[in-house]
Structure formats: C-alpha cells, structure tokens
Design a protein around this nucleic acid. Structure first.
Lengths: 350, 350
DNA sequence: TTGAAAGCGCTAACAA
DNA sequence: TTGTTAGCGCTTTCAA
C-alpha cells in the first residue's frame, strides 16, 4: 500500500492520472473509484465524496476506450458518418440533424467526406470499423455495398442515406426523387410549357437517374413525345451546367422551360439565363432548395429536399437498431416539396 | 493448443474475431498476427501470407482502441473539432480543409456543434477528452478557456480558431477582423460616403467587437466624428438585421452606405434594401463571402474570409504540436480580402 | 459497502 | 523468425 502511494501519488502532473492514482489518493480500492465515476450504487456517501475530491484534485477523466474494452456490449458511444462532403450544405444539414438526435444519448460523430470516390468509401468505412463505432450512417457512392455484409451480419447498425445501397439489405432514408422531379414536370406543364429541357448530373449517380426518370415519365404521361425532350446529362459543376444551358437556349427552337436536377446545375442555369437576359422569359425549376433563392429576380422555384428530416430519421433508425430492433431492413422515403417563387411560374414565350 | 483451436476457431460469425482467432486459424502466435497486421518487419513471407489469408477469411479488423491502450504514446488517431455549427457554411469549410489535411495522416475527426452555448463547450470538450483524442481544434464561446489548462499542460495539442481563447496561452488561427472591417470603411469612404451605418452581431462575440472597432476607428482616422456613426448591434439573425436596417433607412438623414458585420446580417440588410427599392441607391459591404453574392443585383461587395486557409493552417499547427513542437503559443492571422461586386461601389445619394 | 483477481484485445519487452 | 509473458486502464466476477 505504501508502495502504491509512493508510486502513483507522487508522479508528476504530466501524465494523465488513472483510476489507480485516484484510488491511492482517496485511500480506497480501484473498484470503488470505478463505481463512483460511473455513478453506480453501493458506495457510502462519505467514500463517494472522498473519491470525488481526489478525482477533481487530480483532474481525473474516465477513459472510455479502456472501459468499453471490458464492458459487456462494448459500446464506444461513437458512430461514423460518411457524406459526399462535410462542406456541402445539403450534407451538413443532415449532419447537424443527426448530431442533435445523437447528442441526447451522448454519442459522438466521426464525420468524413467521400468526394465521389468509391475507394475512399471503403477505406473510410474501414477506418470507422477499426475505431469500433457503434453504428454508421453512410452515403453510398461505390457501385456495390456488399463489402460491408460481414459487419452488417455481426449486427453493426447501418443506415444508408440519400441513395439506397446495392448488394445488401439495410435501412435507407431517401428523398422521393422521381416523385419530386415528376412534380416539377407537372408544374411546368400546368403553366403551359410543352418544350421543357432537362439538365442532369452524372448518370452514375442513382439519384440523378431517378430524377431524370421521374421527370421524363411525367412528360410522357401528359402526351409529350419523350424522345423530343432536350436532355443534357453528365453535368457535375456550375460551369458545365452553364455551358449546357447556353447551348440549349441559343439553339433553334429553344426550350421555354428548364428543369435542373441539382443545386450547382441550377446555379449554372441561372447564370446562363442571366447572361442571355432570359431570366424572366425562360421558366426554371431546380431540384434542391438553396439560400437566397427567394432573393433572386425572379425568385427561383424549387423542389426542396428536407435534409433535417433525413438526418433525424436516419438517427432514429440507427438508435433503434443499436437498441436491438431486428425488424427487416426498410427504405424510408422523405417527401420533397414544391416551393413556388416565380421562376417556375413564368408562362411559355416562343 | 487443441483447446485454443476449439475455443476460438469454432465460434460463430456473430462475434467479431480477435487476433487470437486469426492466430489459431493460421497456426501461429498472436504476436505474429500483430506484426502482420501492423506491417512490422520480421515475419517470413510464407507466414505473412498464411496470416493474411486467415485474417481475410475471418474478416478480421484490428481494434485501434485496444492497440493504443498499450502502445507507447497511446495515440488514438482521432481529434475533436468544435464548431459554432457543423451546418454553418463558414464552419463546414474549415471542417473540410481540416479533414483533408488530417486524412493524409489517418486521423479521424469528431465534429460537434456549440450553438453559442458556453456549457456545451465544456461538456463537448469533456466528451472529446474521455475519448482520448490526440488533439482538439476549438472555436471558443465560453468567457474563459482556463478550464482546459490542465489538459494543455499535459501536452494535449489544442488550436483555437476564429476567436482567440481567454485565460490560456494556446495557438490560435484567426481572421484579421479589425483590419478587414477597416478596409470596408476605407473602401466606402473612397466612394465618397461619409454617412455609413454599422450593423453588428451580439457584442459578447469577440470577432463582432473587433469588426466594430476596426470599422469605427477607420472612420475616425478619416475625420468622421465617430459618435455620429449610426450603429445597430446585438443582431444575431436575418430578421433582426432586416428590421434594424429598415429602421435606419427610413429615419431622418438615412445613411448612404451600410456595413454589415456578418453573413446573416448582410442578408437582412439586402432584404431591407430590396423592400425599400434602395438596392441601387444605398451602398452595402458585408463581412463574409457567400454563395451567389455575384448573382445579386447589384452584386454584393464583401470582405471575404478564407475558411479553407484557416482550416489548413489549424491542421498544420495541430500536427506540429502532435509531432512534438513545443515552441511558445502563437496567434496566426489569416488576412481577409475585399471583393468588389457592385454594391460597395455605389456612390452616395442623398 | 468494499476490494482483489481476472481478463477485454492488443503491444512492449524479452526470450527462444 | 517466432512466441511468451506482462500489462495498458478499465469492468466483471466474486468473495469478504
């Protein structure tokens, strides 16, 4: 005991104190310290106070990693979140909603950015697994997610967001992409447009394909020959979208309305219209809402997604799985919403 | 040995395999598995292959937490990042730059949102510490950061961003708030403005006070009686800024130019100007750049911060500290930049 | 109410 | 080149 006191009590403040240091200083056993630090019952008030005092004096902090190593269930109270980019506004709102739902349970979030790189997806998932996260929320980008099947079978909770996974049956939370895009088509046709162009993202992205499908099919249902619909795809940034829009608008028989399938593409279309002085002549509906959309001239009509709802729902599903829910995997669809601001209500001008 | 084989090899796939399982399957000692998994030398090629095979067959994954528990230096390859909100565009760009710089070293990032709550700051820092992060990047909001002195003295690397910490000497990376605001003042005066209003954030925020000081002092240096400068402070969202701007602009002797000290305040000012039809009559310079600023009419002139540089620099400082740099704490200043887009170049109209 | 001993999955130190 | 033993900081188990 004297040895222990000497050994642990005397050590300088450079090294982080452990339970043994606290125990030695308080003159109790290490298990008693453990009980106090974890708010477990079975410790007298006097002892508890003594331990608390020692712990504060040493500035002691429980080591979660060491604890969860032995603890049954072995939870780390951390999860992994994989996003296209943490800097993407849509992603970061999902992130925020998730964080809020998980913070209530003391769960910390590892966030990482994919940058559309399938290899990164796999290595970031591996990094999460190596840190023994209690669950993962993933935006899939790789062709196939079957590489996580082993972990999923070991009951590691997993929720996919924005896009459904391929090759594995797991929970997913997605927007009604096709329905939303169809709504955009119907809205433009209701204003009298029949010549409506589609500006789309890279076709290897599932949501982009869904939006295209929903849009075109709705035009078809209204009797428009879908083969005549001007379609420009593979656009992945503002400038390629801008050029595609300029191209369409300066061709013969330009469209009287444009549907842009994503934020950056909408920005590109807006620029093209502005350059041509056609902002009040050509109708525009964009998928994804954005800051200041209502401050544009005219205001930009959009199909808004609800990232907060996606994040919240994903967190709820993840927590349910962590708590042992073993019902079959399911895809949850968060409805999008048409927000009229002017650009989508312009009548056709030929 | 037979016992071990039975015990570890036969277990079902539900439990995560450990090194012992791999060792048993490969017919080697556990330390050999450790060597292979950590790419350490001193293992014959044949043995290495056998271990690798067994590890893949079992879908084995090294447990970083368990490893770092014993490993000298005890690094977890994770850091904590505290932001006003992960959903704030300025914050999330810093986050992204940090992530990129740290990913190269295999370091994962715990991100959390403060929401201007000093209590949250402390509890989130405690959560990071309990997870034994290798370092922290913090946006301070509490009055005082002396509560982390014990950890800082134990050589836990820490870099403060956006605002300087109080009560502790630690590295910080900040924007030249006063200088940037002064640049806005000088720019507006160069257009001939003498009656310039200031719309500012809550005065308990250090950067808000700095911006105000820089702005007012620059007006004073030019001979403007600083007591006559119309100042509205304590604005913390778009609508309060909008109302303050409306108030100023509809009073007697309205300002001919406005400086707004932050993103949301700029949006509020823009709305007020639009409502009054004064967008082309009253000059506006905002602190903080934002998406589509150039698409407004007129384009919005701003003092742009450089979140990517702040994030990158913070990461560099953190890594240097993690690598043992023990030079005195220092504050690094990232210069802001005036971007002219039209709104700040309007001449005074009375 | 309290604490000693074992062991979580791994690496350090050392021996073979 | 390989393996054995101890032990990281903690919780579990069980005995006092």
């Amino acid at each position: 005991m004297t040895t222990m006191s000497n050994r642990y009590q005397a050590e300088a403040g450079k090294n982080r104190p452990t339970m043994r240091h606290v125990a030695a200083l308080a003159g109790v056993g290490i298990k008693t310290v453990s009980r106090v630090m974890n708010d477990e019952p079975g410790v007298s008030d006097a002892t508890r106070q003594r331990v608390l005092g020692a712990s504060q004096q040493l500035n002691y902090q429980l080591d979660m990693a060491a604890g969860s190593l032995r603890r049954t269930g072995r939870q780390t109270l951390s999860i992994g979140l994989l996003l296209p980019s943490v800097a993407n506004p849509f992603s970061s709102e999902i992130h925020r909603a998730l964080e809020d739902a998980l913070a209530a349970r003391g769960i910390a979030v590892f966030a990482a950015s994919l940058d559309d790189d399938p290899e990164r997806e796999k290595s970031l998932v591996a990094a999460f697994l190596g840190r023994r996260v209690d669950g993962m929320v993933l935006t899939p980008i790789a062709r196939n997610q079957s590489y996580v099947i082993p972990e999923h079978s070991r009951d590691l909770p997993m929720v996919f967001i924005d896009r459904e996974p391929v090759g594995i049956e797991a929970d997913a939370v997605v927007t009604d992409n096709a329905v939303g895009a169809a709504r955009a088509a119907a809205h433009l046709m209701a204003q009298g447009h029949t010549r409506v162009a589609y500006l789309g993202d890279r076709t290897d992205i599932q949501t982009a394909r869904e939006r295209r499908r929903g849009f075109i099919e709705e035009l078809g249902r209204a009797g428009i020959a879908t083969s005549t619909v001007p379609v420009r795809e593979g656009l992945h940034n503002e400038d390629s979208a801008r050029r595609a829009a300029l191209d369409l608008l300066t061709a013969e028989e330009p469209p009287t309305a444009i549907f842009s399938s994503q934020n950056l593409i909408t920005f590109g279309a807006m620029r093209a219209l502005k350059e041509l002085g056609a902002s009040r002549r050509t109708a525009l509906v964009g998928f994804d809402d954005f800051t200041l959309a209502d401050m544009m001239d005219p205001g930009i009509t959009v199909i808004a997604q609800h990232p907060e709802r996606i994040g919240k729902l994903a967190a709820e599903r993840l927590l349910a799985r962590i708590d042992g829910d073993s019902s079959p995997a399911q895809t949850y669809v968060v409805p999008s919403e048409l927000i009229q601001r002017g650009s989508g209500e312009l009548p056709p001008v030929s």
